[in-house]
C-alpha cells in the first residue's frame, strides 16, 4: 500500500519560502499593531463620548467607528487571510461580487420597502 506522497523541496525553494514567510510575518506584525491601535482609538472615542470629556458628537463618533471597522475588515482579509498574496484572484472576485450583490439588495430594500 503506497503511502501519501511527500513532496521534498530543494534548498533554493526552501530558502525562498523562508524569506517570503519572514516578509509576510513582518507585515502581519505591523498590521496587527495597527489593528490594536485602531481598536484602542475606537474604545477611547466611545469612552470619551460617554463621559462627555471632549464634547464629541454622536455624528462624529459613529461614522469614524464604522470607517475603522471597514479598515479592520480589509486588513484582516488582506494580511491575515492572505488575500494580498498571489492566487487569490477568485476569492477576491467572488467576495467583491457578493458584496456588490448584497449592497444592491440592501439598497433595494431601503429605497423601495422601508423608505
Amino acid at each position: 500500500m503506497a503511502d501519501i506522497q511527500i513532496y521534498k523541496k530543494s534548498p533554493v525553494e526552501y530558502e525562498l519560502e523562508k524569506r517570503r514567510a519572514k516578509k509576510s510575518m513582518q507585515a502581519q506584525i505591523i498590521m496587527f499593531s495597527l489593528m490594536i491601535f485602531l481598536t484602542l482609538v475606537s474604545f477611547t472615542m466611545v469612552v470619551a463620548f460617554n463621559a462627555d470629556i471632549l464634547g464629541f458628537s454622536k455624528y462624529f463618533v459613529i461614522p469614524i467607528l464604522l470607517l475603522f471597522a471597514a479598515v479592520q475588515v480589509g486588513l484582516q482579509l488582506y494580511y491575515f487571510m492572505h488575500m494580498n498574496e498571489k492566487g487569490h484572484g477568485f476569492a477576491k472576485l467572488f467576495m467583491y461580487t457578493g458584496m456588490l450583490l448584497a449592497f444592491s439588495m440592501l439598497l433595494g430594500y431601503i429605497v423601495i420597502t422601508w423608505w
Binding site: T97, L101, S104, G108, V111, I112
Partner: peptide, 21 residues
Amino acid sequence: GFLGFMVWAHHMFTVGLGPTA
C-alpha cells in the same frame, strides 16, 4: 448570470413599488 441578480422585482411590479422602481 450577473444580470439575473438585478431583476428580481419584475415579479413584484403590481405590489406597488412605485413607478421609479
